[in-house]
Design a protein around this nucleic acid. Structure first.
Lengths: 280, 280
DNA sequence: TGTTCGCATTGATTCATATCAACTTCGAAG
DNA sequence: CTTCGAAGTTGATATGAATCAATGCGAACA
């Protein structure tokens, strides 16, 4: 399924050698690459015709990074956008003393690079092998002018990113450890179901440390929260630490702190914050 | 300075009466309103010529809401965008049990309504009298096609919103109470200095409860953090609870947990999270 | 001019999560 | 097969911030 991408890379290599000229691999233009791309029918590219895609491919360059490799560094000049085709990466911010906050995980179909003024406001590291298309920021204005569909798509994506970001602020500012984990698992479950074939027992690609840095917790608390949800029968944790959702509805209820009658696991302690009286 | 806006409102009223027809005030088109707008040279409108502004005004409607009034409700169909001309509003999300997270404060020049898919992902309430221009979401596509400058402006604004959102995630997930407050005061100080004349001792428009809901704390902790910063000599708190920044550099250092030699107030306890080793 | 009430501050105590520590599992290297 | 280290789980203890509680203060108002 994704071997098409690899074939194209090999084709690139072939072109490079056959031309016998000092061409930078990353500078080679590859019309037609999109046709076999695994992300052809998701994300940004879904909105485009084959014809438009050819143009888009002409201003983008393929890029592959290995697991553990950092491909965006916070503070660097923001020259590129990235459109992920395969694999998962984490976006994060570090403090001088080592504290880290992961602001999101991105996968196939996701667009990376919006959160930047002149410099990137985040770093990005692959947690699996990641393949993507890189665009030049300066080129994007031209693309917008030529293809309103792309512009609209990107605008909608940015809007959705803001929705997700606000949801995460609520999580980090007001939810308990178990609620945070339930929220993440609920969201990831949906993402997986919508993206891949919904086979059960998908192992999470990120470590407990990544989860902790994403949820504003420690690895120990993440582990304990997983145990709590397991003991409630909402999830199961495999021997290889993979997580399966057993009761997705219950999981969502815990995530939203929405009690549904019988077994409520509402915070048995008082509410935090300014004790705003619920209107609903 | 802003009386021009009020004059225009009165003019509106005059037109309404003089026409003696059942015209909905909010539906009246007001060409030329922008000329005297206090936000003419900031935010979205800064990028436009007077001519373009006239067109923009023709597809927008003025709107004023009183302090305490909610003008966007989370979950409602997202039909409008708002461009704030005057006053401050808070954007927030509530949980069923009353917990609240304020995701941002918006003021003159800010654009409201990006964080929405088909429905608003947040609620908005004025914490001062707020005056703004309302745009129809459906109209905006037309505006984009006609004025690329607006489109670019809005795209940049969305990008910046994402930068701010990620910064807030770091704050909520990893910073201590004092660091959170210092971060907020540092940011607000800059915003005020850049927006209005930088007179000292500006009272914050939001209550301690708002601050708590913004910083993921309780009002008591906010109050204690303010006292801590006051005792350090970094800020002063007036009798009317207004806050003045005395040492902006020091404030920024505390906000970023960047120790600058002598007096460090680093967390005397160990670091939280996954103990990622600092690379810098 | 006293009452009330919203807002803020400060102290005492509790609690959810961090920290410290012990142990298990598993895969890679030797 | 043994060693080693990365990743994860679980228990005991510490602590930053939440909760509970008391007080102060200024504005609205009778």
């Amino acid at each position: 399924m994704e071997s098409a991408w690899e074939r194209d890379l090999q084709m690139l290599d072939y072109r490079y050698r056959s031309q016998r000229a000092p061409i930078n691999l990353s500078e080679v233009i590859i019309p037609g690459l999109c046709a076999g791309c695994g992300a052809r029918h998701i994300g940004l590219c879904e909105a485009l015709s084959d014809e438009d895609l050819n143009f888009l491919a002409s201003v983008s360059k393929p890029l592959a990074v290995q697991k553990g490799q950092t491909f965006v560094v916070e503070g660097d000049a923001a020259r590129s956008f990235f459109n992920i085709n395969h694999g998962v990466a984490k976006l994060y911010k570090d403090m001088p003393d080592g504290r880290r906050q992961i602001t999101g995980f991105v996968g196939a179909g996701d667009f990376v690079g919006l959160a930047a003024d002149s410099c990137y406001a985040f770093s990005a590291e692959a947690i699996q092998e990641v393949r993507m298309c890189r665009f030049d920021r300066s080129e994007l204005r031209n693309v917008f002018g030529r293809f309103p569909a792309i512009e609209q798509r990107l605008f909608d994506f940015a809007s959705h990113e803001l929705v997700v970001a606000q949801e995460q602020m609520l999580l980090l500012g007001r939810k308990t450890a178990v609620e945070r984990l339930a929220s993440f698992l609920d969201g990831w479950h949906h993402r997986i179901v919508h993206t891949e074939d919904s086979n059960s027992g998908h192992g999470l690609p990120m470590t407990r440390a990544d989860l902790a840095d994403y949820l504003g917790l420690t690895i120990e608390t993440v582990s304990r929260a997983l145990s709590s949800l397991r003991k409630l029968g909402v999830i199961s944790v495999a021997a290889d630490h993979g997580v399966s959702v057993l009761q997705s509805t219950r999981l969502a209820e815990i995530a939203q702190a929405a009690s549904s009658g019988s077994t409520k696991i509402q915070p048995m302690y008082g509410l935090r914050g300014s004790k705003t009286v619920a209107t609903a």
